[in-house]
């Protein structure tokens, strides 16, 4: 497998911009030749020892990579798909040794659990859900929420997993009668779940009872809002949103992320902060990921930009590498690394500091 991984450049690849820097620590090369779609890092347990593993997804192949030393990763397992292509990996926190993937063409048609056993006789993948799936998110406490169906027969379902990947419990949430675009957990509140809808509402559910607690109308100026992070403080709900359809304005430049505060009791809400590109940078939000108080986005220009949400400004810009645009970016859930992917399957791992 060593030929699948190129040498490591031990040098900063990007000059510090307003206090942040990225250092390339490792590179994974995809030999399959098919289009790369996603990457994720998860914990894996073997003989009582937990270590991070990287999952890479191409259109028809999902691969599991094991760390051989701090900078070298070796591919140890692959799952192949023949009919429906992979759309995304669905990370589920608190779950070890199980990979969840969403498959489909433009929309999700299936969610599958991928298992890795040494015994080839065992089934290596299980169909978890199929149908017209609009949104999916892995939640803490070994849960996964998904919405499916049309507005007339919409289902919002939470599945809790057993250790073997089987379904331990199922719970249905009250549907909002609007197409759900994304879900988000409320940090520190295990029973609260948020959704964003095509009608520009933020919905709040009680995960324990299934109640739809509130629909909160947010600013109409942005469509197709994605919720990346939410937390509750002093009775108010703060949400970090991105706006793939946001247009550049003269006053604030190009907004990529936005922090909104809402009062769940009154549904009144307002913008707190717009996270825009530095002057002279063009591009809209294409894809992104938020972890703690850092937000990373791939822009339509092919550049990756990172914001410190507390400082309020962009800290690093990572232009396309080897004349190839970036196509996705993820924070590692296990450390302060950034995983940046290109369509041809190359995954670059950077240390962010």
């Amino acid at each position: 497998h060593s030929t699948e991984q190129t040498e490591i450049a031990d040098r900063p690849v990007c000059d510090s911009l307003n206090s942040g820097s990225l250092q390339l620590v490792s590179k994974l090369k995809n030999p399959s030749g098919s289009c790369s779609v996603d990457v994720s890092v998860m914990w894996w347990e073997e003989a009582g020892f937990k270590e991070p593993r990287i999952i890479t997804a191409c259109e028809y192949v999902v691969s599991l990579w094991k760390p051989m030393d701090p900078c070298q990763w070796e591919k140890i397992h692959t799952w192949h798909f023949t009919e429906v292509p992979v759309l995304q990996i669905v990370p589920v926190p608190d779950v070890c040794n199980l990979v969840f993937v969403a498959l489909g063409n433009l929309e999700i048609r299936e969610i599958r659990t991928l298992l890795c056993s040494s015994d080839d006789k065992n089934e290596k993948q299980k169909l978890l859900k199929s149908g017209n799936i609009k949104a999916v998110l892995g939640l803490t406490e070994r849960r996964l929420v998904s919405s499916s169906g049309t507005l007339c027969d919409q289902q919002v379902e939470v599945v809790t997993f057993a250790d073997d990947g089987g379904t331990k419990e199922k719970q249905f949430l009250m549907p909002p009668k609007e197409t759900i675009l994304t879900f988000a957990e409320v940090q520190g509140m295990q029973e609260a779940l948020l959704g964003t809808t095509a009608m520009n509402n933020v919905t709040i559910w009680n995960l324990k009872t299934g109640q739809l607690l509130k629909k909160i109308r947010i600013d109409d100026s942005y469509q197709a809002t994605v919720c990346h992070k939410a937390y509750s403080e002093m009775g108010l709900l703060f949400v970090v949103l991105s706006h793939p359809c946001a247009k550049e304005t003269e006053s604030s430049g190009s907004p990529v992320f936005q922090l909104i505060v809402m009062n769940p009791k009154t549904t009144l809400n307002m913008g707190v902060m717009l996270y825009c590109l530095p002057p002279g940078q063009a591009g809209r939000f294409l894809e992104g990921d938020v972890k703690d108080h850092f937000a990373a986005a791939v822009l339509t220009s092919g550049t990756i930009a990172i914001w410190d949400l507390l400082l309020g400004h962009c800290t690093v810009l990572l232009p396309p590498s080897s004349a190839q645009s970036w196509s996705f970016v993820k924070w590692s859930g296990t450390d302060s690394h950034v995983l940046a992917g290109q369509k041809d399957g190359n995954i670059f791992i950077y240390r962010y500091s």
Binding site: N206, Q211, G235, M270
Partner: peptide, 23 residues
């Protein structure tokens, strides 16, 4: 804009909304 524009705030909003919302 200020915090006052958001109306009366409750620290227990989640519990209160859960008790008010239909089951």
């Amino acid at each position: 804009c200020s915090k006052a524009d958001l109306g009366p705030i409750s620290l227990n909003w989640f519990e209160e909304l859960s008790s008010e919302a239909p089951p």
